[in-house]
Design a protein around this nucleic acid. Structure first.
Length: 278
DNA sequence: CAACCCACCTGACTGC
DNA sequence: TGCAGTCAGGTGGGTT
């Protein structure tokens, strides 16, 4: 259930529960997701160790053990962590169960669930992280980048790729998935099909601003979704976020009343308003 | 290199 | 009720 805002909210929820707790048991119910899970290495790294940091980079969640290394989690299209009072497997597509312990407290169980299995569970040492193949080519974080507009403008010169595909490429900027790409481009008034290299500086200023606002609003919305995370069935959805164009083909644009268009772009459904986006 | 296409999976939904 | 076809929030790898 993951673009950047969902991973951010889930990371915050996991941190609130797991930080400072000891991973007393690691159980894998299969050996591979999108890639093989280094099950032995993961267990050796985490079993009996205290979680010292829970963070997000791009759409990855990281669990740190001081002096040891990181657990790396990606949720793919359908992944999620569920917090449960039992380690008993309750869902069909549960692939890993982590037992968290703390003195004089009841154990808590984190269930990694992912029906489509596009997710990733991996681990590495502290020094391996920055050169890890999933991380070494990543672009900047959109919510903490000093000057995203300049960065995108510079990188996009002479590129004929549609701006939407350019925006969704994590080498340029991380975390903007298919929904928020359409939403941010609407907010910035830029057509998704326009060549990235033809988008000018002022349009990139608007786009950087739009990405920030869209992701920030979604995080706020996701926060409400995840508030009762411990009891929830783990199905966040997007109900709290008002989408302007995504999945609204044929409906009236909220700004001008024009019919929202849908096109396929680089294999992904793309939504925009012909009148509001030049 | 840049741009595209595909595969990897299950499940939900549509139309016959 | 069933069955085939389509689509889904991601991304790495292979091909032009």
């Amino acid at each position: 259930m993951p673009e950047l805002p969902e991973v951010e909210c889930l990371t915050n929820a996991v941190r609130a529960t797991a930080l400072g707790w000891t991973v007393s048991d690691v159980r894998f119910l299969r050996q591979d997701l999108r890639a093989p899970i280094p099950t032995k290495r993961f267990k050796a790294l985490f079993t009996g160790q205290k979680l010292s940091e829970i963070s997000r980079r791009s759409k990855y969640m990281l669990w740190k053990v001081d002096g040891q290394g990181y657990g790396i989690f990606h949720l793919g299209m359908s992944g999620n962590f569920l917090m449960r009072p039992t380690g008993e497997v309750q869902m069909k597509h549960t692939h890993a169960v982590f037992t968290l312990s703390r003195p004089r407290r009841k154990d808590v169980y984190l269930h990694f669930v992912d029906p489509r299995r596009f997710g990733i569970i991996d681990c590495c040492t502290l020094t391996e992280l920055e050169d890890h193949k999933y991380f070494r080519e990543l672009g900047p974080e959109p919510l903490s980048c000093e000057n995203l507009a300049d960065h995108l403008f510079t990188r996009s010169r002479r590129r004929k790729q549609p701006i939407k595909a350019f925006l969704m490429d994590a080498k340029n900027v991380v975390g903007v998935g298919n929904i928020y790409a359409s939403e941010a481009l609407f907010r910035a008034g830029i057509r998704p099909l326009k060549a990235a290299g033809k988008v000018n500086t002022s349009a990139y200023e608007r786009l950087a601003q739009a990405v920030d606002e869209t992701l920030t609003a979604a995080i706020a919305a996701g926060g409400t979704t995840f508030r009762d995370f411990r009891n929830a069935d783990g199905n966040p959805g997007y109900f709290a976020l008002r989408l302007n164009v995504y999945d609204r083909a044929g409906a009236a644009c909220g700004q001008c009343g024009e019919k929202i268009r849908q096109v396929k772009l680089a294999g992904r459904s793309t939504f925009y308003c012909r009148r509001c986006q030049a």
